[in-house]
Design a protein around this nucleic acid. Structure first.
Length: 820
RNA sequence: GCCGAGGUGGCGGAAUGGCAGACGCGUCGGUCUCAAAAACCGAUGAGGGCAACCUCGUGCGGGUUCGACUCCCGCUCUCGGCACCA
């Protein structure tokens, strides 16, 4: 067979910048607020401008870009904006490292760099809508939103034991403490301090944040589960245990197992509980005080470890179990948390593992009140925490524990010593940060008027130009009280950057609005976000906060939607040499490198093809070369088909109707896969189409109208993912032009179901329960006709080998029966 | 410990209950070349057969079904999250 090696004349470097310029000049990705077309809001999580953008990070943005381009071609008015989460610690650290440089300078430099790198990857945004959270025209409205929360009673200041990172010298939110360590410094244990801090009252929204998770059907299951657990709803009862010898004083406990109340043999208070001092009797006082002091000092990492043996001390005080009048000891132990429930528990060692361990250690009584189904209840080697039949519970004996739960609660409610309650694990969101580089909290402290919000007309409270701690800068904090005009002091803490990012997706709707945070009409035009793409590391923090903000703004009548993100997707990370790709790790591939060597299109397609989008993937240069080969073959198929025909190897001709069917099927598969973010299989189908087209040519297929149609479909389907090469080929085919192009003309190939497949059924022919053969026949035939035609074939006769089929099963074919 | 996701060739990975391994990488063979690289053509789950073909094969053990990677039950391993939340 004759072969003529021929190199394709596809040279990405010669065409990519040309098209990037053309798109920008034509403004093809500018979203119109007035367009009559249906809207599509395609959002990627705005990044922190660390200056570390590699092709690994770009994978996320390519996904968003593929979707934006396809949706645009499909006739949607697409909002595909970008911005920067620009406040935050790394800027301050870098500023310190580089001696005297201002965090803003460093941040804006990185932003400029990042913008350029995104553009060279061919990723298109409506840059007119760019938001930068550290600029006054943005953070002014973050301040404004804080005041809105304050007005609505959702921002408050409180003294609280807080998580303090000794390295960053700032307070952290609960969500930013991981295993008792700082989220930024996995080696650094978080300390506990008591400080006056600002909180946002997210707990008011716990129930709705939980309930509405059910509406988010297009979120990853995993994220919904994580948020559910984080919010942590528990149904139970609060019960009052009167303190012995103290008239009118009682300890309120929370339990999820009121059915075990008769098994409560002692009580435990958290060390920080308000009644500890009161219930402690004299001989125990010094020991209790010592224990409490030690517990308060201990870091969470010590205190929360489950491996650690439980410790505690008896107070000497007693309380009365309200269900049976029994006197029970009151203990103090740090396994009870002051921040959950009421900070006090009834201990039921027979049916709670923690209480059991504690009772064993300190020889406290254990009484079984729930008998496991099937007996075996005498085993006291461990707590039985499951359901069962109530015993030792007086009038409730014999009830199953679930019924007992309800009966006991009702009884307590009638007696007035308890009530049904729901508790959440979620805590209020601590937003104060003792840092310079953040959004100022617009509050003034006046000796006369107390906490005074800065009047809206006086916003923004600007960060001073000089980079030093705000508390050390009297020019900043020295002010006058907006109410009485006396000397007053500004709040010198700034806000958690997660406040900035909790509403940026709304700002994109009207980014230049100087009168309000966002124009409700425009926000409602674009919201909710149809597709939100970003890392799973934000499964709780950012996504929970953004949902909270959206609900508050919904309640304030500023938004019509109460959930911000319809469909969420968490992409995997790109690794290289086994590590996440990054410049600092030294294993990064920069967009510059990639574009110079293989071109942006090959890089984009490779990143989509490399593996399932939600999985972490390993970058390999060999794999990238495979995509380069694919693009060169496409180029030759489209523009230089003669070179393919003469180099042919495949002898078998491809039937033209098979080519047409393949084309139709590919339209269906690729469209669905882009839509469903299954980019890896979308690329595979494009490759299959190219393979089929090549076989067709090499089998002597004519370059007729059908061929031309196939070529055009291939180019169009390729466009979202490999836009530069597609636009160039389109122009060279005579379809595009200086003012036109695939994206500008915006047409997407239509799926022709009739062309994609012919109605078929598969006959499964069996002899004695064993499959002998399968035959695909036209669906129009009756069973007899189908069988007769199947039996006429040599292959089936050979398979049967004289035997008679004992069974024939008709299987309707899939709509898409891909041609081999 | 609890919750969740997942175990498919040498590798990344495809498969609405209907011919497992698409697509790509790698490897092997070939064409071209003085040669090599690149490019192109072909082969490539394992075992057997000159061959057409045959047998086995999706972590392990059962089950449902004419038919199971796919559904059900039990186990096991890996990864991710949470972790004294009463």
């Amino acid at each position: 067979m004759e072969t003529k090696p021929r190199r394709s004349s596809y040279v990405p470097q010669e065409i990519e910048s040309k098209w990037q310029k053309a798109w920008e000049e034509r403004g093809v990705m500018k979203a119109s607020d007035m367009s009559p077309k249906p809207k599509y809001y395609d959002l990627v999580m705005y990044p922190y401008p660390s200056g570390d953008l590699t092709v690994g990070h770009a994978r996320n943005y390519v996904m968003g870009d593929v979707l934006a381009r396809m949706k645009r071609m499909q006739g949607f008015e697409v909002l595909h904006p970008f911005g920067w989460d620009a406040f935050g610690l790394p800027a301050e650290n870098a500023a310190m490292k580089r001696g005297g440089i201002h965090p803003q300078t460093w941040t804006l430099e990185n932003i400029a760099k990042g913008r350029r790198e995104l553009k060279m990857m061919g990723i298109l945004y409506d840059w007119d809508r760019e938001v930068i959270s550290c600029m006054p025209d943005y953070y002014r409205w973050t301040e404004w939103l804080f005041l809105l929360f304050y007005e609505r009673g959702l921002a408050y200041r409180a003294m609280a034991p807080v998580n303090w990172c000794p390295v960053d010298k700032t307070v952290l939110a609960n969500e930013q403490v991981i295993n008792g360590r700082c989220w930024r410094h996995p080696d650094v244990e978080v300390e506990k301090r008591d400080l006056e801090q600002w909180f946002l009252k997210i707990t008011d929204y716990a129930e709705r944040l939980l309930d509405d998770l059910q509406l988010l059907e297009e979120w990853p299951h995993k994220v919904r589960v994580m948020q559910t657990n984080w919010i942590g709803r528990s149904e139970g009862a609060e019960v009052d245990f009167p303190v012995v010898g103290m008239e009118g004083e009682s300890i309120r406990i929370f339990t999820t197992r009121p059915d075990t109340l008769f098994g409560a043999t002692f009580m435990v208070l958290a060390p920080e509980h308000a009644l500890v001092e009161k219930v402690t009797t004299e001989p125990n006082r010094s020991r209790v005080r010592e224990y409490v002091a030690t517990a308060r000092k201990a870091s969470d990492i010590d205190r929360l470890s489950t491996e650690r043996e439980k410790t505690g001390v008896a107070t000497g005080g007693f309380a009365i179990n309200p269900v049976n009048g029994e006197k029970v000891q009151i203990w103090v132990a740090d396994y009870v948390l002051v921040t959950y429930g009421t900070g006090a528990i009834m201990a039921v060692p027979a049916h709670d593992e923690r209480d059991f361990e504690f009772a064993r250690k300190y020889n406290l009584p254990i009484r079984e009140v729930i008998a496991p189904p099937g007996g075996g209840g005498d085993d006291l080697s461990e707590a039985y925490v499951g359901p069962g039949e109530m015993v030792n519970s007086e009038q409730f004996d014999g009830l199953d524990s679930k019924t007992g739960f309800d009966r006991i609660v009702t009884w307590l409610e009638q007696k007035g010593t308890g009530k049904r309650t729901v508790k959440y694990r979620l805590r209020d969101w601590l937003i104060s940060r003792q840092r310079y580089w953040g959004c100022p909290i617009p509050i003034v402290y006046c000796e006369v008027d107390g906490i005074v919000p800065v009047p809206v007309e006086q916003l923004p409270v600007l960060l001073p130009d000089e980079y030093k701690p705000l508390a050390d800068n009297p020019d900043f904090w020295r002010t006058t009280c907006p109410k009485c005009g006396r000397e007053a002091r500004r709040e010198t803490d700034t806000m958690d950057t997660f406040v900035d990012s909790s509403w940026y997706f709304l700002r994109y709707a009207s980014p230049h609005d100087i009168n309000e945070a966002f124009d409700p009409e425009l926000a409602n035009r674009w919201m909710a976000v149809d597709q939100y793409t970003g890392g799973v590391e934000h499964a709780i923090l950012h996504l929970l906060y953004s949902r909270f903000f959206t609900k508050v703004l919904f309640d304030a009548g500023m938004l019509d939607v109460s959930e911000p993100f319809v469909r969420l997707f968490n992409q995997g990370m790109v690794k290289r040499f086994g590590q996440v790709m990054s410049k600092s790790a030294g294993n990064g591939v920069s967009p510059d490198e990639l574009v110079a060597k293989q071109g942006a299109d090959a890089g984009r397609i490779y990143e989509m093809f490399i593996g399932p989008p939600e999985e972490d993937v390993e970058w390999s240069d060999a794999g990238l070369n495979g995509v380069v080969r694919f693009l060169q073959r496409v180029w030759r198929l489209v523009l230089e088909p003669e070179s393919i025909m003469v180099s042919g190897g495949s002898a078998s001709a491809v039937d033209p109707t098979l080519l047409h069917r393949k084309v139709a099927q590919t339209i269906k598969k690729v469209t669905d896969d882009y839509d469903g973010l299954r980019f890896n299989t979308a690329v595979a189908y494009l490759m299959e189409l190219a393979n089929t087209m090549q076989d067709y040519l090499q089998g002597g297929g004519a370059r007729d109208a059908g061929w031309d149609a196939a070529v055009r479909v291939l180019v169009k389907l390729l466009n979202p993912i490999g836009p530069h090469i597609s636009e160039e080929m389109w122009e060279r085919l005579g379809e595009g032009g200086p003012e036109r192009g695939l994206l500008a003309d915006a047409t997407w190939p239509e799926f022709d179901a009739a062309a994609a497949t012919e109605p078929q059924v598969t006959l499964v022919i069996q002899v004695a329960g064993k499959v002998r053969d399968r035959v695909t026949v036209s669906a129009g035939l009756s069973e007899e006709q189908a069988l007769a035609s199947a039996l006429a074939s040599d292959r089936v006769r050979a398979a049967l080998n004289g035997a008679k089929p004992s069974k024939v099963i008709y299987v309707p074919n899939k709509l898409i029966n891909l041609v081999p």
